[in-house]
Design a binder for these strands. Sequence first.
DNA 1: CGGGTTTGACCGGCGC
DNA 2: GCGCCGGTCAAACCCG
Length: 249
Amino acid sequence: MAASLGLAHDACYAAYPPAAAASSYFPSPPPPPGDLVAEFPPPAAAMAMVDDYYFLFGEEMGGARAPSCGGYCSPPPLVFDNGMSLLSYGGVEGDGRRPMSGPAGTGSGGRRPASRIGFRTRSEVDVLDDGFKWRKYGKKAVKNSPNPRNYYRCSAEGCGVKKRVERDSDDPRYVITTYDGVHNHAAPGAAHLCPPPPPRGTTATATPFSPPYSASSAPLVAAPSWSAAFDAWEAQLHAAAAHSSESSY
DNA sequence: CGGGTTTGACCGGCGC
DNA sequence: GCGCCGGTCAAACCCG
């Protein structure tokens, strides 16, 4: 039971950019059929600075870490016209990128976050205001990086969402922010940034970082559908990017 | 005074 | 088994 639960969590799908930004930035990617959708709610101000997204589909739940990149692998499956790269790996069985072997949930500690989503942002400030209130609880020097990693926890009572913030060792201009878990409350004062997700014909569409995760009923996404979905989305994306490039830059 | 930050210690997983 | 390393804890400190 627990093992299947972990695998199902691996199938979580994060839609970037958030709906608020998507309307003016580029179209939202189509959700894989039958999969969960988690939309991340960075604020519009932060979104404007985001140069690089990447998705972490609970990739460490199976105990397997991304090789030689500290869990922040950056395979470039999608590179947009505006220079943004969308990265995804793991969780999608058959994508050939992640070994799905190994018992889920048996990694370090045996308790893995329900979801992990990260993005890379070019920013002067380390901590981007994403509408939630965070409390710093740790700071750690990480191996192979001159920059320390800061640990934050959502200040809301009962909310166990954590985030890690660190400067990219390769390019200090970039900040790598990784979110662990799902908020069980609305963002204080930032609700306008995260409108309810539009109906997508899916059975389980999570509000931004909110439960429920009906993981037990969420099937793994077959690679073909995933690829086809992204192909379609990418086509939309390029069209939108070409259309908005005149006004944006 | 309350809430947040800092920082060293501690713990547990993992690789060798 | 041991050492390394990432993540967390908690006491002290800081600030509004």
